[in-house]
Amino acid sequence: MSERVVLESAPDMVRMLSGSMVRGAVRKVSGRHPQVLPDRVVELSMAEDAGRLATYARVCGFAVRDLVPATWIHVQAFPLQLALLSAPDSPFSLAGIVHVTNSMSLLRPVSVGERLRLTSSYGPPREHRRGVLVDMIGEAYVGDELVWRGVSAYLVRGGSLPGMLPEQQPDGVVLPSDVEVAADAVWRLPAGLGRQYAAVSGDFNPIHLNPLAARAFGFPRTIIHGMWTHARVLAALEPRLPDTYRMDVRFTKPILLPSSVRFGAERTGDTWTSVVRPRSGEKSHLVASVLPL
């Protein structure tokens, strides 16, 4: 039986982020850290903030609609992921973990006025050639009805955990690191986009905000949140999507700010496959597939 932690209000993300980074640094020195994923479900009930959703829509390119995009629910659930990842008994710190894939399903249309009950928990760890993949499973309920489910896979480099499953799991993200899709539309990402997205998403990871911090983590400049790019792709496709869909994303290369990138999408049968590439260059930043449910 999992431990159930019900939060009264959204946790302070900046504090969790900084606490986890400090803890990571301490552990690096001490070499000691927990070896298992806590069996815990974090839960939070919340009303959506229509004003914040409108700003989110503006920053990511969505129309301000009555129904919310799937990525918005991920944004709502993200503090719960952080609460798990930044807990003292988390086997790793937030510094240095890499978001590699995301999969989310909007199971029924969710309107901006609905009160959501969000949960987050760890899935079983998976093997990866460069470490261990940790799945964070998010669920959103209206009453007792599951309306959204998301799985975010993070790579912990060099890590290893007991009970690891093979990397490829049924129903997992099967996207390759690139797809043959023409990408002709140009998106211009301004230097301040990371700050804009941080303000509306609450993800104040310094690699998105400050060039010096970005350099400390090995990036020449700040990078945009992968979830912004994810949302931007969804925003581009949204007019063509039905009310319920599953979107899988593989984050293949960070996008430095400022920059221009290219986007393209193709439909095969019911499935949209899309890609974001550098303005000049071929190696993808992100590949995604969306299929109606």
């Binding site: 229509a50 004003g51 409108a54 700003t55 829509a57 503006r58 129309a63 301000v64 609609r65 009555d66």
Partner: peptide, 17 residues
């Protein structure tokens, strides 16, 4: 009030949808 964050494009899109 309620639509202060919505643009004309947003509202017209909502009406069409």
């Amino acid at each position: 009030t309620a639509y202060r964050r919505a643009t004309n494009v947003d509202m017209l899109t909502a009406a069409i949808d």
